[in-house]
C-alpha cells in the first residue's frame, strides 16, 4: 500500500542546451546558427550601448548616459577585483578621487590640456592607488574591505583639514569635454573595450592565476606565485579603470572636489554589481545601466535616491545574490524542467 501522502517530491533539473555544448570549448563552429548563438548576445550589447546616446531625448539624459558609463566602469572594476582576485574593495571612490584630483591639479596648476591630463591621471593615479593599497594586500577579506572603505573617507577629511587643492570648494573652471557627443562616444567605447579585455584576461593563464589566488592563496604561494605581485597587478588594472572615470568625470563637469570621494562612488558600483550578477563582468555593467537611470529619476526627491539603491542593494544581496545576469545566462544556456523524485 502506498502510505505516503502529501505533495510529491520534485526538483528542478537543468540541462545545457545542445547548442551551448556544441559551441563551447574545443569544438569548431559548424553552422550559422551556432555562430549566431555565440554572437547574438555580444552584438546586442555592443550595438545597444553604441546606439543608446542617440536615443536620448535631451542633453540631460545624454549626460545621464555618460555618468552611467562611469558607474559601469566602476562596477566592472569592483567585480573584477572582488570575484576574480578576491579583493573586496569597498572604496571605489578612492580610485575616482585620486584620478579626479590628479587631472584637476594637472589641468588647473600646470595648464595641461585634457587630452594629456586624462591619460596621465589614469596611469599616475593607478600607480598611486596601487601603492596606497599595497600594504593591505596581506589582509584577509573582511579587514581589506574595512580598510578600503575608510581610505576615501580619510582622503576627503584630510583634504578638508589641510585645505589643499581648493579645500571644500574644490577646483572649478577646469577644461570641459568639447561636446556631449564627444563625451558619450568616449566613455562607451572605453567601457566596451575594458569589458571585453577583462573577460579575455580572466580566461588567459594569468587570469587563472588570479582566480587561483582568490580560491586559495596558500596553495598559490606553494606553487611559487607571489601573492603581492599579482594582487598589485590586478589592483593596478582596476584602479586604472577607476582613475580614468575620475578624470573623465572631472572634465565632464569642469570641476574637481571632495565629493569625488563620496560614498556614492563606492556603494553604487557595488549595488550595480550585486543586482547585475557578481562574477559575470557583463552583469555589473548592465546593472549600472539599469540602476543609474532609475536613481536619476529620483534625483529631484533628494536623498530618497540613496534610500532606494541601498534598499535594493540590501535586498538583492540577501534574497537574490546571484543577480540578474546569472539568471539570464542560465535561461539562455539551459533547459529547465521539473522532475519527480
Amino acid at each position: 500500500m502506498l502510505t505516503q501522502v502529501g505533495p510529491r517530491e520534485r526538483r528542478k533539473e537543468r540541462l545545457d542546451r545542445g547548442l551551448k555544448v556544441r559551441t563551447e570549448g574545443i569544438y569548431a563552429l559548424s553552422s550559422g546558427k551556432e555562430a549566431l548563438y555565440l554572437l547574438a548576445p555580444r552584438l546586442t550589447l555592443i550595438l545597444g550601448l553604441l546606439i543608446l546616446p542617440l536615443l536620448m531625448p535631451n542633453l540631460y539624459w545624454q549626460r545621464v548616459i555618460c555618468i552611467t558609463g562611469v558607474f559601469g566602469l566602476l562596477s566592472l572594476a569592483f567585480d573584477f577585483l572582488a570575484n576574480y582576485v578576491g579583493l573586496i574593495c569597498l572604496g571605489g571612490a578612492l580610485f575616482m578621487g585620486v584620478g579626479g584630483y590628479i587631472t584637476g591639479i594637472l589641468n588647473s596648476l600646470f595648464g595641461m590640456p585634457l587630452v594629456a591630463t586624462i591619460p596621465a591621471a589614469t596611469v599616475v593615479g593607478a600607480v598611486f592607488s596601487t601603492v596606497l593599497l599595497s600594504p593591505c594586500f596581506p589582509l584577509r577579506g573582511i579587514y581589506f574591505a574595512i580598510v578600503t572603505l575608510m581610505y576615501p573617507l580619510a582622503a576627503s577629511r584630510i583634504i578638508e583639514a589641510l585645505d589643499i587643492f581648493g579645500g571644500t570648494e574644490g577646483m572649478a573652471d577646469l577644461d570641459t569635454l568639447p561636446n556631449i557627443w564627444f563625451a558619450s562616444y568616449s566613455i562607451i567605447p572605453v567601457l566596451l573595450v575594458s569589458l571585453f579585455a577583462l573577460r579575455r584576461l580572466v580566461t588567459e593563464d594569468i587570469g587563472l592565476v588570479l582566480r587561483g589566488l582568490k580560491d586559495n592563496d596558500q596553495a598559490a604561494k606553494a606553487s611559487g606565485i607571489s601573492i603581492t605581485r599579482y594582487k598589485a597587478y590586478s589592483t593596478f588594472i582596476a584602479s586604472a579603470i577607476g582613475c580614468f572615470t575620475g578624470a573623465y568625470l572631472v572634465h565632464l563637469y569642469g570641476w574637481a572636489g571632495i565629493s569625488l570621494f563620496a560614498l556614492d562612488f563606492s556603494i553604487l558600483p557595488i549595488a550595480a554589481s550585486v543586482i547585475g550578477g557578481m562574477g559575470t563582468l557583463v552583469g555589473p555593467v548592465l546593472g549600472a545601466f539599469i540602476l543609474i537611470p532609475l536613481t536619476e529619476l529620483l534625483r529631484e526627491l533628494g536623498t530618497l535616491r540613496i534610500v532606494f539603491y541601498s534598499l535594493l542593494l540590501a535586498g538583492f544581496i540577501v534574497f537574490n545574490p546571484e543577480g540578474l545576469m546569472t539568471y539570464a545566462q542560465r535561461k539562455y544556456h539551459q533547459f529547465e524542467h521539473w522532475v519527480e523524485v
Binding site: 572582488a82 573586496i88 572603505l149 549595488a271 534610500v307 540590501a314
Partner: peptide
C-alpha cells in the same frame, strides 16, 4: 563581505 555590505546598505537607507 555580504554582512558588511548589507548592514552598511541598511544603515545608509
Amino acid at each position: 563581505a555580504s554582512e558588511i555590505i548589507a548592514s552598511l546598505a541598511i544603515g545608509l537607507a
